[in-house]
């Protein structure tokens, strides 16, 4: 019982202490709170832009087209990625990617467009036998890398001033690295959602003459949709609360607006930077508790949505 009390302590503690501190005279700095919230939101959205398409597409591939042995490896590899401490990813972002990205924003943008186009065109041009396609995650790596490099090279030709970031540590950088960090979350949850679907349904679709692709799009995808949405929500919750990467890669400048090349400061970074310096029960302390509460409320909201979605997924599977 003691444990359970302990477990419920976080929200209780935050609420109680925030409520108990008198708002003596001055009201909290809502504008700053808004900017911090906006910073977290921007980082999250930017990360999801990278993580969600890649993670879900990879999970779809793993569930429907992948060689079964490779599927296990793929999962293990991504679990390994999940075990990598985020401070390490933050370091890579801060020290290695940031200086490079400062001059290659256009290249990255072009690469993000060129790579899928190249893959699509390649798929149109060649109809490979299915067995070999099952191993594509392995031999496709050079293909993807080549497409990305080509994109970057093409992008280097563009020298538009629109693509010059205000600071080497900006939202795009945070999004890229945070996206990598949440990739395992998206993948694992999407994979679970797809694996939970009865294989009999896919089999029935195949027996009716559907191709694997049609079975995926017409049967599996609609059935798993709520699970996939849950995956996105969980990933968003994770991004929103992630601290180290944002702390190291964002520049920590409290800027408003939605500039994807500008710096930002997130709720979590504010806590990590300011809390150790502030004395308990001071005005700054109270502000920071509000920040923590906001963070808590948002993550709980996202979790609740994910939970509802997962319940719906389960309800649909009951045959």
């Amino acid at each position: 019982m003691f444990v359970l009390l302990l477990l419920c302590a976080i929200p209780a503690y935050l609420l109680a202490s925030a409520a108990s501190l008198p708002f003596a005279g001055q009201s909290p700095d809502w504008a700053r709170l808004g900017i911090l919230f906006g910073g977290s939101l921007r980082a999250t959205l930017c990360a999801l832009v990278f993580a969600v398409p890649v993670g879900i597409a990879a999970a779809l591939f793993a569930a429907h087209f992948c060689a079964p042995r490779l599927r296990g490896w793929l999962r293990a590899a991504l679990e390994l990625l999940e075990a990598v401490p985020t401070v390490v990813l933050g370091l890579i972002a801060f020290a290695s990617i940031a200086p490079w990205l400062a001059t290659h924003v256009a290249g990255v943008v072009v690469a993000c467009v060129v790579a899928p186009c190249a893959l699509f065109a390649w798929g149109l041009a060649t109809r490979t036998p299915r067995r070999r396609l099952g191993w594509m995650p392995l031999w496709g790596v050079p293909l993807v890398v080549a497409a990305l490099v080509a994109g970057v090279v093409l992008g280097a030709g563009i020298d538009g001033t629109r693509f010059v970031p205000a600071s080497p540590w900006n939202t795009l950088l945070v999004g890229l690295v945070l996206g990598v960090a949440t990739l395992p979350t998206v993948y694992a949850m999407a994979d679970d959602a797809l694996a939970a679907l009865p294989s009999a349904q896919t089999q029935a679709a195949l027996a009716l003459g559907a191709t694997r692709w049609q079975a995926l799009v017409t049967v599996a995808l609609p059935a798993a949709m709520s699970g996939l949405i849950a995956a996105v929500c969980m990933a968003a919750a994770r991004c929103f609360g992630e601290t180290m990467i944002v702390l190291m890669a964002s520049g920590n400048t409290p800027l408003g607006g939605f500039d994807w090349l500008g710096g930002l400061r997130s709720l979590s970074a504010e806590l990590a930077l300011e809390l150790p310096r502030s004395a308990p029960s001071g005005a700054a302390w109270r502000e920071l508790l509000l920040v923590a509460l906001l963070l808590l409320a948002t993550t709980m909201l996202l979790h609740a949505v994910a939970r509802v979605m997962r319940t719906r997924l389960r309800a649909r599977q009951v045959a």
Partner: peptide, 12 residues
Amino acid sequence: SAGVALLGGAAA
């Protein structure tokens, strides 16, 4: 096959 290539590319 183009669609599958896209998905496979993501996995890659």
